[in-house]
Amino acid sequence: MIGYFLLVEGCSPILAQQERESRKPKTPTVTSTQPPISFTMTPMMDLTPVSGVTLSDFKPGDPHGTPQIIYDQTCVSTSAEHKAPGGDDYTQGRFERPFDKEMNYLPSLDIVRAELVRSGYGWDYFTIVLEAEPASSPVVYGLELDLNIDGRGDFLIQLPAPTSSTWTETGVKMFWDSDGDVGGRVINRSDPHGYKGSGFESIKIDANAGKTRGQIWSRLISNGLQIAVAENLTGGKNSKFSWKPYTDGNPFPPTWYDIDDYFTMEQAGSAIVGDLDYPLKAVYTVDNTCRGLSGLTPSGNEQGVCPP
């Protein structure tokens, strides 16, 4: 199991933002001081399939190990002003937009931090901590996974808010980009004239429909949720991948990804007062973080990952 701490102040993106400097004012950095979520360690069994036993015969337990942590910008301090204090860089695919179309603040969509624990016992545990309890449908929460770290998402995990602290598969879906067009013509940057590919056009897991059950589970925690992903989906115990949590209050179709390619900046609007495109337009009620890199130490050259 490989684990390390990752601290991102203000969730600055890894790529330069020169072309955006004329559009927005300087914003302060924000460093969270909240401690990681702690859980009671429970015995786990090795989930390697043997003698006809499959992973679907087991449920996740509790995560144990050192978490990788991504701290995100939040909007609670500026919510009354109907704006984000920073952290929203649409051209880089970084969203800080936990507001409805009228710029009313939605704390159940505002990510405070995210954590990953790779247990080494068959499950990878992702935790999303919010400013408030997760909201009910149609709101969805999830993860985008890039398995070869090329900046193009491979899997999009999407699920409704769980309703209890018991692990459940209810509503879990995982979409797949089978033709590799997520990211558009220019990876990790908005295509200047928009790009409408097929996005995450194939579905690999649909728990409610009985398609490939037992691989992804979720449960409720205080002001957040936890998602357990079978490690075979992320490439195995020693794999390398990047991960990005997100919230979506008015879910975009998976075939519209990447959203910052599907909509131009002018169409999407902005959450930053002073931007030419303020307020929000087509792209609202969404939040995400930079991409966490798991399995190796960031060099700074990886596509779209959090700064080392």
Results as ranks from 00 to 15, higher is better:
6 L>P: 00
91 T>W: 07
161 A>K: 02
160 P>I: 06
204 K>D: 05
45 M>P: 02
38 S>D: 01
164 S>W: 01
243 W>D: 01
131 E>N: 13
115 E>L: 10
72 D>V: 06
174 M>H: 01
149 I>T: 15
204 K>N: 10
303 Q>G: 01
287 D>T: 08
218 S>V: 12
85 P>D: 07
95 F>G: 04
1 M>N: 06
265 M>Q: 13
276 L>W: 12
255 T>V: 12
218 S>G: 11
172 V>T: 07
300 G>R: 06
236 G>C: 09
107 P>N: 06
106 L>G: 01
172 V>Y: 01
239 S>V: 03
147 L>F: 02
308 P>A: 10
161 A>L: 08
178 S>K: 11
65 G>P: 03
119 S>G: 07
124 D>V: 13
112 V>A: 08
230 A>R: 14
193 H>P: 00
156 L>I: 02
144 E>R: 12
148 N>K: 11
234 T>H: 13
164 S>L: 03
232 N>L: 05
261 D>E: 04
21 E>P: 00
127 T>Q: 13
230 A>C: 12
297 T>L: 15
218 S>Q: 14
216 I>Q: 03
73 Q>S: 10
226 Q>H: 13
43 P>R: 06
196 K>F: 01
224 G>E: 07
10 G>K: 05
254 P>A: 09
131 E>H: 05
223 N>W: 09
292 G>T: 07
136 S>R: 14
175 F>Q: 02
76 V>A: 11
168 T>D: 03
169 E>I: 07
69 I>G: 03
150 D>N: 15
299 S>P: 01
286 V>S: 04
75 C>W: 07
283 V>Q: 00
2 I>D: 08
180 G>V: 08
112 V>S: 12
245 P>I: 03
22 S>M: 08
251 P>Y: 05
162 P>I: 06
240 K>P: 00
209 A>P: 04
27 T>L: 00
12 S>P: 02
158 Q>E: 14
37 I>K: 14
112 V>C: 07
98 P>D: 02
89 D>R: 06
244 K>H: 07
226 Q>K: 11
157 I>A: 08
125 Y>M: 03
38 S>Y: 00
98 P>W: 04
136 S>A: 15
9 E>M: 05
